[in-house]
């Protein structure tokens, strides 16, 4: 099975986010593989281990995004593709999908895996836009995967439970954080990742021009929201329960 996993390189979510004008600062800040994409990498590795094949990681981002790919390679993926180009600095979800589709479509594949939503951008729409460009079906919010001959059965999370969806390959899935437990990279994995191939591509390598990826949405203003003020914070001296109850009574809900 040829599995492609989308991996995004994002500013470390454990550090306070910084703005660069109207945008999230991405360069010159500590970056990591989006923790949400570790579930995608793990899903790809498990499918490969059970059914054979190859796991390819694809990312679009600045040259530093190679680190996110290295992380996935050290978990066990086979190779990487990084699309990096100055013209992509302001890419929106539509442009990102167009670029990833061009990169993924260059070789045959059975399955594309992405995260449900990224930690920094959380549009959640990029994967289905990508699926449409690749002209394949998509099943988002996968929380359980069961491949069989030529097709896959997915438990897809819904607002009140889940649906079971069946689909023949090729298709795209997005995985939730409940789908698996991502492995840690072993020392051996980290060492061997250094030798695994990472192909670097520019827009023109993909036959795309700057016009193809021109952004169609721009932030025009940032406005501070009306803040909720912190109220009273008290240490529980045994009367915490009473205080909460008194508050509920004041709010007329009991």
């Amino acid at each position: 099975m040829n599995i492609v996993v989308c991996v995004k390189h994002i500013p470390d979510p454990n550090l306070p986010p910084q703005l660069d004008g109207h945008r999230l600062k991405r360069e010159g800040v500590q970056g990591v593989l989006d923790p949400g994409d570790e579930f995608g990498v793990e899903a790809g590795l498990q499918l490969k281990e059970a059914h054979g094949g190859e796991v390819t990681l694809v990312s679009m981002g600045p040259p530093a995004a190679a680190e996110a790919i290295r992380k996935g390679l050290s978990m066990g993926a086979d190779k990487g593709i990084l699309v990096s180009d100055d013209a992509l600095q302001e890419a929106d979800a539509l442009a990102t999908a167009r670029v990833l589709a061009a990169a993924i479509g260059r070789q045959p594949f059975d399955l594309v895996v992405a995260g449900v939503e990224s930690t920094d951008g959380y549009t959640g729409t990029m994967p289905s836009t990508l699926a449409e460009f690749l002209d394949i079906p998509q099943i988002t919010f996968a929380k359980h995967l069961e491949p069989s001959d030529g097709s896959i059965t997915v438990q897809r999370q819904t607002a009140e439970g889940y649906h079971v969806v069946e689909c023949p390959f090729p298709l795209l899935i997005t995985v939730t954080a409940g789908v698996n437990e991502p492995r840690y990279a072993s020392f051996k994995g980290i060492m061997s990742a250094k030798k695994k191939p990472v192909e670097q591509l520019s827009l023109s390598d993909l036959g795309l021009s700057g016009d193809d990826v021109a952004r169609k949405q721009s932030v025009v203003e940032l406005v501070p929201a009306e803040e909720r003020k912190a109220g009273e914070v008290v240490r529980d001296d045994g009367d915490g329960g009473r205080r909460v109850t008194a508050f509920l009574a004041d709010a007329k809900v009991i």
Binding site: D92, A93, L94, A97, R98, T123, G124, T125, M126, P127, S128, T129, L130, A131, E132, F133, Q138, T140, K216, Q217
Partner: peptide, 15 residues
């Protein structure tokens, strides 16, 4: 959300 994402690719307009 999925439908809007796919439609964006078809129409070439932003979501």
């Amino acid at each position: 959300r999925d439908i809007a994402g796919r439609l964006s690719a078809k129409t070439g307009s932003p979501v």
